[in-house]
Nucleic acid binder design. Structure first.
Lengths: 203, 203
DNA sequence: AGCATATTGTACTGAACGGTATGAAATGAT
DNA sequence: ATCATTTCATACCGTTCAGTACAATATGCT
């Protein structure tokens, strides 16, 4: 049957993702979207549904890509401590290279949309939980190899690293002096040296 | 001369603050504002200027009030460690009591507005820097009293606490399991026990 | 070739947006 | 009491919003 789609759905979704990432949900209009995606309004609606559904598809694309980026980054070093150091410092470096200060799409959504829309509360939470698990597994790898003390609770440390990561990403949106974030990163990384955060209540 | 204003400017601004705090800048319309503030459109414009200016006034009111709240909270305990414990745990407790999940107005603005508007980049940054100084002074008080080791860099630790505070506030927007934040808080507070965060580069 | 089907571009919908013109109402000064 | 002045409520401005109707276009199947 019939006429086939003339545009690349993945490329169009990617353009939408970039736009929502940079401007957020409310501030991005359908006119913005059509021009950046290079397709007309009815094509968006037929391919992705309404604005909220398109936003969801864009966010899912982001989280999937971000998750695999983080996984790769952490597996890239044999030393676990080095892996996290490289990840955190790279994050800071990237944000201070100038450029448009987009931060993390998922975190932006957590702040702007999650409190008013349960679907996005769940979506963003699940991504953070996934990151936490990836961190935890990486830390456990370090414990098993003997690099890290086994007195460290991998899970609790991983959770704290996720919180710290979010804090760093958000604070950089106000472009503080670089020493501010650098100092924080070094303290956060020092958590790998200290003995054990005691686990509290956990399922 | 002449007719005097019939509404309480402070009460109206407070209502605007609540609304912007809960919904953000873009999602709050002038119709929302007029009904919540209890005054008509032209009264808003004559008293506060346009929407952006009203938003700025609301944010300034918030940061002033928040700053004095934090100062009071930290001075409330003779033990510095207890003061921070009470502050962080109170923050978590508050957010898990149900309610509308507004988080922190300044952090919300840092994410939604600061990247696209330099005035708000500066405003939000200055508030974080102020909090950092309040934290630092509190920590120094603890060092002088002998409660904390003087090997701790008060400044660097304060900066890290601000970052952690932001991370906690933001992650709670996705309503993670309580143990997640509780664990993180206990790790963050354990920073008071550890020896030295080394200071890096600082003016 | 011709029909059925899906996608395209154009143009439009009603509603909501931020912001304002205007005149009536209300006050203080004279 | 009158008048200048300011605030108030109503009603409106042009623009932009998200979403859609429709006709023209392009393809695959028979």
């Amino acid at each position: 049957m019939v006429r086939l789609r003339e545009f690349d759905e993945e490329k169009a979704l990617d353009a939408a993702m970039q736009l929502f990432w940079e401007k957020g949900y409310e501030a991005t209009s359908l006119s913005n979207l059509t021009s950046k995606m290079g397709i007309q309004r009815p094509s968006i609606y037929s391919a992705f549904g309404d604005k909220k559904q398109l936003f969801e598809a864009a966010l899912r694309k982001y989280t999937a890509s971000h998750a695999s980026y983080v996984r790769a980054k952490l597996q890239n070093h044999s030393s676990v401590r080095e892996a996290f150091r490289s990840y955190f410092e790279g994050l800071v470096e990237e944000e201070y290279e100038g450029g448009p200060n987009r931060g993390c799409f998922c975190i932006n959504t957590m702040v702007e949309v999650a409190p008013h829309d349960e679907k996005f509360e769940i979506l963003t939470r699940e991504h953070q939980m996934y990151l936490s698990v990836v961190f935890q597994e990486t830390i456990e790898r370090g414990i098993q190899s003997g690099e890290l003390k086994n007195s460290i609770s991998a899970k609790v440390l991983a959770q704290t690293l996720v919180v710290s990561l979010i804090g760093l990403t958000v604070v950089m949106k106000s472009r503080p002096e670089r020493s501010f974030v650098d100092n924080s990163v070094s303290v956060i990384l020092s958590l790998f040296n200290t003995s054990k955060p005691r686990e509290q209540n956990d399922e």
